[in-house]
Structures are given as structure tokens and as C-alpha cells.
Design a protein around this nucleic acid. Structure first.
Lengths: 211, 211
DNA sequence: ATATTTATCCATCAAATGTTGGAAGCAATG
DNA sequence: CATTGCTTCCAACATTTGATGGATAAATAT
């Protein structure tokens, strides 16, 4: 399963690849239960049987999307990790925010999909395990919030989670929030980046002397 | 519709009230499409026909939940507004975070429901308008982030949105995030409040001198 | 006590949805 | 050309799901 999945990723022009891309998109918009196999097939432009021929059950297709996303995000985080090496904490945060925002704004269905995964239950089968856990730890280390790889403070992890969530929310909630701000898409991107930096950088860079 | 809705809120022991509460819970867990009318009926402990007798179509029930939540949240925000009056900015933020966290941790289905509303599309009919817009502005004013009620800076609004989202995410994502932190529920609440304060208070209280 | 309204359930329907079988196209191979 | 294997579509099936009609009981009114 994994090998065929990777093949589909490597060749987005193949039918399996096209289906996977559409599935990601539609699942991301409507969630698991909100998506019908017919919707995905229609998005690809094929008959529903063809979809089943390539991917089997709906659940299997869904899980393939999860694994696919897992890989893609791990790669993105590795990219960030290498880019921030040796920089100051402020610069590290700025780079991380910029790279993640650029990536997610270019692939908005990604953050939507992940949020569904976090907060929505799927009837019947137990929820999938999206391996954020290791990501969080890696980010904490890359950001310099944890010194010892063995022991990462709860506060550091929680902070990373908060940041990660903020990013996802701004991207996924654009349709909801942008009208409130009464600005265009491009300006929205700038505002999001600025706001994230405005909120996050002081927290992590200043000395804390609070109760 | 509104009057009957309010009646149901006022009397949670009535059948309409019990259905509304169950609907809120199940819709919050599984989203609109993930929820079946039979699931709600089962949660209440009644036959599906009885549910339809009281609330009519699924969509109507769903919209009633939205309106119900709207009222409840508006009330919560008014409560916060009165509590923070005259306090320092730091204290205002602390109070707001505490009150909202306490409320949402006691009613976890609320934040889940709202997140579905933000990020999930529902097939067919257009999305409901959850009136966050006015909330955001009111909070910005109550927090002292905006001086002029007529003109609220984009940055202030965006900041409030970020805060609001962070709270919702931590509460809704407890099942997902708490295992990463390897702590219990009560400690999780403490960590969430601390993390939010840790991140948010410096951002809003310090003088900013950034590019 | 009788009539009327209200509330609940059982059985059922129609549409939507996940899934499959089989026929038909199509390319490569012998 | 015939055969084989791969791909696609049409049609259909079984289940789920939103929704309703009608019988029955419980409450209320007259």
C-alpha cells in the first residue's frame, strides 16, 4: 500500500495520482462524512467505478490521503529545520512562519484536512493517528525551545502546538475571517504573517517574569 | 422560531430542550454530515419520529443549535466585558482567558461545533453566518486594543481572531494534544491557560519595535 | 365521562450513498 | 489477427438516512 501510494505521489499525472489529489481537496473541504465517493469521482472527471477500481473502499482512499499528507508535511518541516539552522531565535521564528504560511496558503486544502482530523470524529472506526507528536518535538528542538532531545518541557510542546494551530486556523478560516477584516487575499496573507509574528515572537524572545 | 428556541433554552428539562442539548453535542462531535438524526434521537432516548415532531427537518435543528450557541456566547462575552472593566491590560487578558477556558472546558462540544462551522462546508445550502464579526470587534474594544468604536484596526481584529482560535483549538483538540504532553485533564487545563497567557500577554503588553 | 389536543412510537418510503459485476474499449503481445 | 491484460463506464444492489403517515397512548379540556 505504501509503495503504491508513493508511486501515486511521484506521478501526479497518473490516474491514481489525480484521484488522490481530488480526494485530498474534497475531503479537506467537506470532511470525511461530508464527502461522497461520487463527489470525488466527479472532481476527477471519471466514473465512480473507476475510482473504486484504483483505490478500493472510501476509507482506504481517505487513509491514503492521510499518509500522503503526513509525508508531505514531514518534508516541509525538514526543509524548515535546515533553513533555520544557526539563525537567531527571532529569525528562526520568522522563517518558520513564512515558510509554513507560504506552503499552506498555496495548498489550502491541507490545513482544512488536518483540522478535520484534529477535531472531527468519524463514525465507526477509530480515528486515524496523524503523527503530529513527533513533529511537535522536532519543531521544539529546531526552534531551540528544548535543549535536551530526551526531555522536552511541556511548556515548549504546548507552545509549539499553539503556534501550529494558529497557522492552520488563519489559513483554513480565510473565507470566514477575511470579510471581517475587509481586505483582499494578498493583503490577508501579509496580515496573517504579521499577526503571527507580532504575537509569537515576543512570547518566545523576551525574558519572562510572570507569576 | 426564535421564541420557541428561547423557550427550549429556558427549560432544558423539556423535550425540545433535551433534543437541542443532544443535537449540540452530537453535531459538535461529528459535524453536520457526520451526524444522523437517528444518532441524536438515540442520544436523547427517543424515537426518531418524536425528534421530527418537535424540530422538523435536520437543517432546522442544526440552525437552531447555531442560534442557541450564538446567544450563549454573546452572553459569555458580555460577562467578560463587565468583569474586565477598569482593570489593567494584563489583568484583562488573564481574566478573559480564564473565563473563556473555564466555560469551554465545561462545554467542550461548543468549541468543536464552532470549529466545524468555521472550517467545514456543508453540501447544498450555503453556510450559516455565525456572527463572530461583531464579537471580534466588541472584544477588541473591551480589551482596549481599539480606541475608536468606529474604526478598529485590522491588526487588532486579527489579533483577537488569533486568540479566539487558540482557545478553541486547545479545548477541542484535547484528545489529540494531551497525549503528546503526557499529562492529565486537570493539568491540561492549567497548561493551556498558562500557555495562552505566556504567548498572548507579552504580545499585547510590550511596546513593539519591529520591522 | 367524553372529546380534543398533545406526544410518542412503529412501519414505511424515497432518495442518497457505498460498493460491485459485467460489458465494452484499448493498448500491447504473441 | 487473436489474445491477453488493463482501464473505463453503465447498470444495478444493499444499506443508510432524511422524512412522513397513521395508530396509540397520555394529558387536557369541556
Amino acid at each position: 500500500m505504501v509503495s503504491t501510494l508513493e508511486k501515486a505521489r511521484q506521478d501526479p499525472s497518473s490516474m491514481k495520482g489525480k484521484i488522490l489529489a481530488s480526494a485530498r481537496k474534497v475531503f479537506g473541504e467537506y470532511g470525511y462524512h461530508g464527502t461522497t465517493t461520487r463527489m470525488i469521482a466527479k472532481d476527477v472527471g471519471i466514473d465512480i467505478s473507476t475510482l473504486y477500481y484504483h483505490w478500493g473502499e472510501k476509507r482506504d482512499l481517505y487513509e491514503s490521503v492521510v499518509m500522503d499528507l503526513n509525508d508531505e508535511i514531514r518534508q516541509k518541516l525538514l526543509e524548515i529545520e535546515s533553513k533555520v539552522k544557526g539563525k537567531s531565535l527571532t529569525t528562526r521564528l520568522e522563517i518558520a512562519i513564512d515558510v509554513m504560511c507560504d506552503y499552506l496558503f498555496s495548498n489550502p486544502e491541507v490545513s482544512n484536512f488536518i483540522l478535520f482530523l484534529y477535531f472531527g470524529k468519524t463514525r465507526g472506526d477509530s480515528s486515524l493517528n496523524f503523527k503530529v507528536s513527533e513533529y511537535i518535538s522536532n519543531i521544539a528542538i529546531a526552534m531551540g525551545l528544548a535543549l535536551d532531545k530526551k526531555y522536552i518541557p511541556v511548556k515548549a510542546k504546548a507552545s509549539v502546538i499553539a503556534v501550529w494551530n494558529s497557522v492552520l486556523n488563519f489559513i483554513s478560516g480565510e473565507d470566514f475571517f477575511r470579510p471581517m477584516l475587509d481586505i483582499g487575499h494578498d493583503e490577508y496573507i501579509v496580515v496573517v504573517k504579521d499577526t503571527l509574528k507580532f504575537i509569537l515572537i515576543p512570547a518566545f524572545t523576551q525574558e519572562r517574569n510572570r507569576s
